[in-house]
Amino acid sequence: DRPQGRGRKILPTPIKKIALDKGLEVFQPENINNEESIKKMKEFNPDIILVVAYGQILSSHILNIPKIGCINIHGSLLPKYRGAAPINRAIINGEKETGITFMFMKEKVDAGEIIFQEKIDILPDETCGELYCRLSALSARTLSKLLEKIKSGKIERISQDNKLATFARKMNKEDGKIDWSDRGEKVYNLIRGTIPFPGAFTYYQGRKLKIIQAKFLDDYQDEADTGFPKPGMVIKIEKDSILISTGDKGMIKILRLIPAGSKELTAKQFVNGYKIKVGEVLG
Results as ranks from 00 to 15, higher is better:
I73R: 02
P79Q: 01
F104W: 02
I100G: 00
L78T: 00
G83V: 09
I57L: 14
I18D: 11
F44R: 05
H61W: 01
P46D: 12
I10Y: 10
P79G: 01
A84D: 10
S60G: 02
G55M: 11
P14V: 11
K108F: 08
P29E: 10
G75Y: 12
S37Q: 09
A19W: 03
F104N: 05
I38M: 07
N31P: 06
D110P: 08
G69V: 09
A19E: 04
A85E: 04
K39T: 14
F104M: 03
S60T: 12
A84K: 07
Y81C: 04
Q56A: 07
G69N: 06
I18T: 14
G94D: 10
K22H: 15
A19P: 02
N64I: 03
E36R: 13
A19K: 06
I91H: 01
N33W: 09
I68W: 07
Y81K: 02
V109A: 11
A84R: 05
L63I: 11
T101H: 08
A111N: 08
G23T: 14
E43C: 04
N93R: 14
P14S: 13
N33Y: 10
N93E: 15
M105P: 02
F27D: 06
V52E: 03
K16S: 13
V51M: 10
I87A: 05
F44E: 10
I92R: 01
K17A: 11
I57G: 05
A53Y: 09
I100S: 00
I57K: 10
T13Y: 01
V109L: 14
T98D: 00
I92V: 15
F104P: 01
L63S: 05
K16E: 15
V26Q: 01
I65G: 03
L24V: 10
P14D: 14
T98I: 06
L63Q: 07
G99L: 03
I100N: 00
R82D: 01
G99P: 04
